[in-house]
Design a protein around this nucleic acid. Sequence first.
DNA 1: CATCTATTTGGCGATATGGCAAAATAGATG
DNA 2: CATCTATTTTGCCATATCGCCAAATAGATG
Lengths: 97, 97
Amino acid sequence: MDMKQVLKKSYAAQASVIKAMAHPTRLLILNSLKKKETCVCELRDLVGDDISTVSKHLLVLKKAGLVAARREGNWLHYRLTCPCVLEFTECIRGLIK
Amino acid sequence: MDMKQVLKKSYAAQASVIKAMAHPTRLLILNSLKKKETCVCELRDLVGDDISTVSKHLLVLKKAGLVAARREGNWLHYRLTCPCVLEFTECIRGLIK
DNA sequence: CATCTATTTGGCGATATGGCAAAATAGATG
DNA sequence: CATCTATTTTGCCATATCGCCAAATAGATG
């Protein structure tokens, strides 16, 4: 595989993670998880969408490796695996202002 | 407008910028512009897609405020407006490894 | 094992995205 | 002003995404 292909593959991998972040609800979830582990039902209250919708957003984040879950009785507690991804929103907010 | 609405609006604005970055070709373009201002035709060679496709990607980046253009004769030179957005890909690469 | 609660999964319609090709535009140059 | 070059815009199709609802699942508890 030539250099160009390697680069393309690397950018595709990065893009898929970034894409997972590129949704208002998922940003809200990530920022909420920054503070503490949270169960799905609590996130649903925060987000205000149907719980199945919230669950699907969590699946997207999980597939991207951005969050992980831990079961405790009936509840699944989600947590942020990689807090550094949120530092970057500082830069974005600077861009928007 | 209540607090929740304000937050939602802020996340929507952030998400739209992040979404602009969430494509392999656009990441390639941003990383290329990090090194130097570049004209569209040079980017097309780099990317390998039709020039109209590259132009559309540049429009997406421009609308997000991530790049800006400067005309010089027949050429439009694009540049990165906010290099800090690329620091964050360090963190993403760490996540992928 | 029947049932309850929390969560995920499947299905569906509406809308957005990405790529190419063709047509339009903007500015430079004869 | 006719023409050339670089770039953008338009149109089209295929595919992906988002949100809801209904149905399925996983584990706890009587």
